[in-house]
Write a protein that binds this DNA or RNA. Structure first.
Lengths: 203, 203
DNA sequence: CTGCTATCGTTTAGACCTAAACGTACGTCA
DNA sequence: TGACGTACGTTTAGGTCTAAACGATAGCAG
């Protein structure tokens, strides 16, 4: 932070440095460092990918802190939110939860177990002709969502308010296009994300 | 995936649904579901925040898969990359590594321990008048970086190529502005990110 | 020189996740 | 109706991260 200039990531622009990269920007500095050390390194994606990860990390950490202060965690709120948003009877199967929260069925099983222990959800026995376990929001779980959702979402709306309304719209639209394209390229997994809940460690 | 329409996230637009939200888009559907269930929910940030997390997750999973196929993991490549990019003598202290990779010192300690066990880095005893442990890239570590960086970065450049060049530039620029603003709002932690390495589970 | 304090790095405890191995229960096809 | 394949959920093993407790040391003040 104090003397990064000497050590590498923000280097003196080499003779061949692309004009688009600003040595003063932390992310551009990464691309420039690669080019300085290994001319020809394909740095094209860094400007988007690294910033995406970086922003996701900052926002995720912030949500975690906000929820930790309220005695909750992101994984649980994610689960409760999906159920709450699904509307009455606030009941979904494990598989639906996995798809909507973008985590593996195993992770959902663990999340549900934790939330169940806190009395926030209940597991109902599989319906007669099915083996799908239904997970239902309890009254207590419902209360928890109500008490946290506005706080969390308002906080995040505020965090992106540094961008002007048109910029926010432009950014959201570009991300929408990128996301749609990524889905087609990567083999369209479900979707969703609670509108709540930072990305798991990707993995 | 098949019948999401019935269960909630993509609801029939309520009378008060904002014109900007498209019920057919998975992320907009989340905002619409909140508005349907809880009119007044501050959904403004969802279009950006959720998409950001979602894209970060997809890209992170992809990198993890690419590296797993090559017998490596993202955390280790992140470490090696920062050292490689810093230029000769490819040596940084634990603290510098923590700042540049945006993870806690404890995580760096664990990463270094793992990489050291694989013979990819070495821990040098603290210099005489200091307690800063220097971590250095070994020849083997250097080779590993060289063999993986181009593959990983080229792959990611390709993944964002669905956006036209001007769109990529516009997206990168908006993210740059957002990131700068987030840093000022959240208490400017260091920076960096290897240009390599998906976000830890955010928090 | 003696003790305080700030700084560093490591260790530990607790969360959480993925991948994969497991049980089970359907449904089907002979 | 009996065996098989499949879908679903849970469990287990392994890995990573953060937060916080620790241990040790350098710099300073008295």
């Amino acid at each position: 932070m104090t003397d990064r200039a000497r050590t590498g990531d923000d280097p003196p622009p080499p003779a061949t440095a692309p004009a688009h990269l600003d040595p003063g920007d932390p992310v551009d500095a990464i691309a420039l460092a690669w080019l300085r050390e290994r001319p020809g390194t394909p740095v094209t994606g860094i400007g988007i990918v690294t910033r995406l990860w970086h922003a996701a990390k900052l926002l995720g950490e912030d949500r975690r802190r906000v929820l930790a202060a309220a005695g909750q965690d992101t994984a649980t709120l994610d689960l409760l939110s999906v159920l709450r948003r699904s509307g009455p009877p606030y009941r979904l199967t494990t598989r639906e939860l996995a798809e909507r929260t973008m985590v593996t069925p195993g992770a959902v099983s663990q999340r549900v177990a934790r939330a169940e222990q806190e009395g926030l959800v209940e597991r109902a026995a599989p319906a007669p002709g099915s083996r799908a376990v239904a997970v239902t929001l309890t009254d207590r779980g419902h209360e928890v969502v109500e008490s946290l959702v506005d706080r969390v979402l308002a906080r995040e709306a505020d965090l992106v308010s540094g961008l002007a309304p048109e910029q926010q719209r432009a950014l959201a639209e570009l991300l929408r296009v990128l996301l749609a394209d990524l889905h087609t390229r990567l083999g369209d997994r479900p979707i969703s994300q609670v509108g709540t809940e930072p990305p798991g460690r990707s993995g």
